[in-house]
Nucleic acid binder design. Structure first.
Lengths: 229, 229
DNA sequence: TGATTGTTGATTGTCAACAATATGCAATAA
DNA sequence: TTATTGCATATTGTTGACAATCAACAATCA
């Protein structure tokens, strides 16, 4: 019995199911842009492409539908869900509230390992900013926030937060490369982390919520500029 | 073409699917206590009982699993999820945060119809309290909070809130009939609504969050008294 | 007697087939 | 020419069958 690896092939086989794997694969395709909002998912083609029968695929559809990433129309098929400006605004508001809770809780506990990790991410954010590497900055930005929320130690909170982050990905894609976005955002991360380290729960919550709502305003302004209607 | 009723039989048939109906039925069974935390769901028996084949039932399982109400063990079956005190505490914290956001937004908008509805519910709560009718009080309590959150007008917020309310139902059942619980809770509802009507967003948010966290403390204290573990 | 092996039956996981529905295109009528 | 009807095809919804896995029990061994 091989127990030297993190997870043995046997244990992995006992844990993984086709619906689970298909769910993960579809989610990946949605998040990385292979599947776009509004795209229709053809069961037969997709089942053939993934090398499974339609049953597990349909199970995966139901999971992703409940996760808010797909929508089903009976007898007409399943589509990647589209999110408009109004719903995006709702998501941002809720997300800001969840982040504020996380910052408040994190400022109260301040686990050294998490703080160190966040500080490292801040450094990497500064690097990406110095190199005007928008893609890298964006990815690190997400990582910073996710790490912060996870470090609060409330798994229900983390799960909901991630759920919303995935959903907001369905909002029309925006250009992360605009240099004007980068500077403001970097300063804010530093300030939020400093407040957390200082143990100022209330100020940290306010700062991160303000930061999130600023992001919302910027994103919605951009979306409005691209499509005035 | 019959369009006089809210939804014609044809439209209903076009909308409703077996997986959707089964999902709703299982959820009802979980929420009304027909299915208890830890119960194992036997596919064959349940499919026969509901008069469907196992395919739609499995689809329903995936949806409810994603909703946090069921958990699957591959090759061993599906179980109603159990929630312990730690997770319950997490859920309460997040719920309180969401309710605070709702109260803040509601105090800013104060839609007359929603306010009237909440005031009516408050009256009904007082009736139930006067009659020491714990079950009715509990149901109205849930209704009051749900109405308040929904009235904030953020559908993402409402959906997440409802998701958490359903999940908290998996926590061990407690006696709602204890008279000591009733008085405090009624006063708080009145105070929260008054602050909302007064348009004091910040105070309303603080009051409702305090209320929610008080509920958390009471529920956890009771759970601890029942099972010191 | 306790541990191990073998067998059986129940259940879960997946697939393929059939029924039902929607869509698109061609033929027909006005 | 436009609108309507009919037909064929593709796709979705559901079912039943088969394979794989697990748990329980009986038989055997040390």
């Amino acid at each position: 019995m091989d127990t030297t690896s993190p997870e043995s092939p046997i244990a992995m086989l006992q844990r993984l199911s086709l619906p689970g794997l298909v769910t993960a694969e579809l989610e990946r395709m949605i998040l990385d842009g292979s599947l776009l909002p509004g795209d229709k998912l053809n069961e037969m083609a997709l089942a053939e492409r993934l090398g499974v029968s339609r049953g597990p695929l349909r199970e995966a559809f139901r999971a992703l539908e409940e996760a808010g990433l797909l929508r089903q129309e009976k007898n007409r098929g399943v589509f990647v869900r589209e999110i408009g400006a109004e719903e995006a605004a709702e998501i941002f508001d809720v997300r800001a509230s969840l982040e504020a809770l996380a910052a408040r809780q994190l400022a109260a506990t301040r686990p050294p390992a998490a703080i160190a990790h966040l500080q490292q991410l801040l450094g990497e954010l500064a690097d990406a900013h110095a190199q005007a590497d928008g893609d890298r900055y964006h990815a690190l930005n997400l990582k910073f926030h996710d790490t912060l929320v996870a470090a609060a130690g409330n798994r229900t909170l983390s799960a909901l937060y991630r759920r919303l982050v995935k959903q907001i990905g369905l909002f029309r894609r925006l250009n992360h490369r605009d240099p004007a976005v980068l500077g403001t955002s970097l300063d804010e991360h530093g300030r939020i982390l400093a407040l957390i380290i200082a143990g100022d729960s209330a100020a940290a919550a306010v700062a991160i919520e303000r930061h999130a709502l600023d992001s919302k305003a910027r994103m919605l302004a951009r979306a409005h500029a691209s499509h005035p209607a």
